[in-house]
Design a protein around this nucleic acid. Structure first.
Length: 469
RNA sequence: GGCUCCUUCGUCUAUCGGUUAGGACGCCUGAUUUUCAAUCAGGAAAGACGGGUUCGACUCCCGUAGGGGCUGCCA
């Protein structure tokens, strides 16, 4: 186990391409990425496609897209496990030669019966072929690893779970090579991790017991075990296993809902990892401080409120033009047509808009007062506000504002407060009417800001129209 | 069934034997006398349960309950 040469840290994310990259996988990838970066190591990607029946190229693409969107790029091109089948078979045969593995001629049906019998006896499955020599048997066979004796203890010193002990009696003679000579997951991971020189395996704790089984294999090969860190799975909001209903959605779905990738990353980081009182940790900072010690042992649940809040935080940091492009995309998706002149206004208003938004679509909604078709549709309430005294205010304001030479925020604020003074009332009496006149009842920022954003001509037109309805 | 992991406010979590159990989201109240939001100021809110160990346990040990995982020629 001792190694006097400092090894370069190499981690990997190894999804099976049987579906989209969902939130749990993304978090696992993130932890591996962060750990590698923290130690100036490498982060690799391996597609575990040894299950031919369930693996699809679409899923591979979805995973790659998801990783790219999140910015979790691997340092080398992905390794496709199925392409390494020959290497896997070679290792299995070495194991047979050394007596650590054997050919098992049990049919699947026979194996099932044996397994049930063993289980009933409180013991793991053992093949009747594990000890004998069956050179003359030419029936189809699988290659199985000969499990350790009953009282042999396998200790995994897990960085998250602590030392975990498994007894030999609980380990079965697991299949390494199928009847068709293709490798199983257990063989493939071990061989690939070794060939890829993986030093740290950070993965879901659904693999915790597998770590013991894999360690037996690794020991049989005389290789060095990687350091393990098994992180708890993410649960749904009801504490049950994560499902689609809970948000086990593809990361692409989060993109469509209007979350920023950096927000997803930052949220995911804190789901199961902590460092004192730190709350929102941007990824660049996480690279400096991420450690295995901060990983929690208990499963966590998704909280969309918190996610939204984190997203709001990153939206405020986001570049206005980038945000504008996203608004454009959402508008297209919702089949809302927005004129270029309005996009210009939206961009100018972005610092104000983004401070009020949680998700990207909020930007679209909250800018409706800019792009809504004019003349405005008035809500009943707004219509009421521009009547009576409101009408007087709007008319008066229209006159004053038309004479303004400088259309800037200070000027507008001053004019508005002068107007209030003239009318001998507070802002509370005039702002609602003006707001209604300018927006028809839509939400909008501060009234002076709204005017500045809309521009002199537009404000004039809207005020004039409001006096006529 | 066997083995194994987990359990602090509603949620994410801090605490690594001695704290008024801290922070964040959400929630409630108030403020900004211009909507909605944002912001600011307050507030309510937690150690699953039962035994030990100890001068002293959220923290260590055992058990119970609840939840997760593995037990495949799936990964």
């Amino acid at each position: 186990m001792s190694n006097n040469k400092p090894q370069q840290v190499i981690t990997r994310f190894a999804p099976s391409p049987t579906g989209d990259l969902h939130i749990g996988g993304a978090r696992t990838a993130l932890f591996n990425y962060l750990f590698a970066k923290r130690h100036n190591g490498k982060f690799l990607l391996r597609i575990e496609d040894t299950d031919k029946a369930r693996s699809t190229p679409q899923a591979v693409a979805a995973i790659l897209d998801g990783m790219a969107w999140l910015g979790l790029e691997a340092d080398e091109p992905p390794i496709y496990q199925a392409q390494r089948a020959n290497r896997h078979a070679e290792v299995a045969h070495e194991l047979i030669a050394s007596g650590k593995a054997f050919k098992c001629y049990l049919t699947p049906e026979q194996a099932t019966i044996q397994r049930e019998k063993a289980m009933a006896a409180g013991h793991a499955f053992r093949s009747p072929y594990r000890d004998g020599d069956h050179q003359n048997n030419f029936s189809p066979f699988v290659v199985r690893l000969r499990a350790p004796d009953d009282d042999v203890a396998i200790i995994i010193d897990d960085k998250v779970q602590g030392p975990v002990r498994t007894m030999g009696k609980d380990l079965d003679d697991m299949v390494l090579l199928r009847t068709d000579d293709s490798p199983t997951y257990m063989l493939a991971v071990v061989v690939d991790d070794y060939d890829m020189k993986i030093t740290h395996v950070i993965r879901g704790d659904d693999h915790l017991t597998n770590a013991a089984r894999q360690s037996v294999l690794i020991d049989a090969l005389g290789w060095q075990r990687p350091i393990y860190a098994h992180i708890p799975l993410i649960h749904g909001s009801d504490g049950k296993k994560l499902s689609k209903r809970h948000g086990a959605l593809a990361v692409g779905e989060y993109e469509k809902m209007g979350y920023l990738p950096e927000a997803m990353l930052s949220y995911l980081l804190r789901l199961g990892w902590a460092k004192g009182d730190l709350d929102i940790v941007p990824i660049a900072e996480a690279i400096e401080i991420f450690d295995l010690e901060g990983l929690g042992k208990s499963p966590s649940r998704l909280d969309f409120d918190k996610l939204a809040q984190v997203n709001a935080f990153f939206m405020q940091l986001a570049d206005d033009k980038r945000l504008l492009e996203m608004v454009r995309k959402w508008a297209e998706r919702s089949q809302i047509e927005i004129a270029d002149t309005d996009f210009t206004k939206i961009l100018a208003a972005m610092p104000i808009l983004k401070a009020r938004a949680k998700l990207i679509p909020d930007l679209l909604e909250q800018s409706e007062f800019i792009w809504a078709k004019t003349p405005m549709q008035f809500t009943p309430k707004a219509r009421e506000l521009v009547g009576g005294f409101g009408k007087e205010v709007v008319t008066h304001a229209a006159t004053i504002l038309k004479e303004l030479s400088n259309w800037d925020i200070e000027m507008l604020r001053l004019s508005l407060s002068n107007l209030a003074t003239e009318k001998n009332v507070g802002m509370g009496k005039i702002a609602p009417a003006l707001r209604a006149a300018l927006t028809g009842g839509l939400v909008a920022p501060d009234i002076a800001q709204t005017m500045e954003i809309l521009g002199k001509n537009e404000v004039s037109a809207r005020l004039d129209y409001a006096t006529k309805i």
